[in-house]
Design a protein around this nucleic acid. Structure first.
Lengths: 181, 181
DNA sequence: CTCGATTGTCTAGCAGTGCTAGAATTTCGT
DNA sequence: ACGAAATTCTAGCACTGCTAGACAATCGAG
């Protein structure tokens, strides 16, 4: 039906299964059973397809974070649940996570023309982290720092640059220190 | 003379000037005034060249971190100095930083066969962060978390995913919260 | 001094990439 | 039923990492 969605879904599936390097315009075209130029009728290029996957992922991550946080009892547990949900998402959807935060999808970040799903994903973090910022600390700034820390953990862990064993301990330490209950 | 060093230095220079995408085997060969296959006599491929740049960078970063930390007065200032030195390095040597922590240079991390320069770079962090871990917190685990947070800040900032303005505020908040004076 | 073998180096090429001009086809309004 | 418009494909460009095989330089032995 909507070929645009078919392309995005196929790209995502292929990236999740074999990595973004395996998502070539030829393979993608073959999988959707059209020729290459058809892709360019919907997207300016591969970058824009990555961007589309990123937006889809942002919406899902926002939902996952909100669900986990709202199920938690108490403000501290909420922060912990958020952190775990974020890292779980990164672990279980690595290709989508990369599209969002590691690859260039041609999307604007932290600007006025930032796409709504990205703004909302950040909002989902902010909603649940604002109370943990502490006295006299800007909630936005605190959210940025918390997010960056989670991002660092997610990327270094997946790239094998942090030992896989103590992941849980690292999350706990991070939450313990950053969040003012 | 030592062509191996010439290759690494040229690759680094080119990457720093035009980005790693511009470092193609052809361009690199042209710049060292040899043909492409000569590169493969010294390195298995582009990945290994990236790895060589990463090792060089690790040694430099370790030195930079140690220098900054040892010049600081007091334990808290030492942590701040370390954080600033790390982020400065990432900002001023983006290509080298990418070779170390973002790209695949075929190097082993956090393992027994991890190359010495990488181990030493981590050691440079550990040396200066151990005292800030706090009671009952493993210094290694603390260093991992601190490092990951810095890495998140470095990558998200450079990718334009965090607003460039409040960088200093974010570092201060991070140090304030993570380091137990 | 010459010759064969060993190095070293280069040319040319493979299979792949993102992307696109222009031809061929299908669809549709008249 | 036909011409126009929209759609889709074939074929190709310039590039990538990498390598087989031809070529040239060097050097030790006779």
């Amino acid at each position: 039906m909507d070929r645009e969605r078919l392309i995005v879904a196929t790209a995502r599936e292929l990236a999740e299964k074999e990595g973004w390097d395996a998502v070539t315009t030829r393979r993608l075209a073959e999988r959707i059973e059209y020729s290459q130029p058809v892709l360019y009728g919907h997207f300016r290029g591969k970058r824009e397809i990555i961007g589309a996957v990123a937006l889809e992922g942002a919406a899902e991550m926002a939902a996952a974070v909100r669900a986990a946080a709202s199920a938690a009892a108490g403000p501290r547990a909420r922060v912990t649940a958020l952190a775990r949900a974020y890292l779980d998402f990164a672990e279980h959807h690595p290709a989508v996570y990369d599209a969002m935060f590691r690859l260039d999808g041609g999307l604007a970040f932290a600007k006025d023309d930032t796409p709504e799903p990205l703004k909302d994903a950040f909002a989902a973090l902010l909603e649940n982290l604002g109370d943990a910022a502490g006295e006299g600390v800007d909630a936005g700034l605190f959210t940025e720092v918390f997010w960056a820390s989670l991002h660092g953990l997610a990327t270094l862990t997946r790239a094998g640059r942090l030992p896989p064993g103590d992941a849980a301990g690292r999350v706990q330490l991070l939450v313990d220190r950053l969040a003012v209950v």
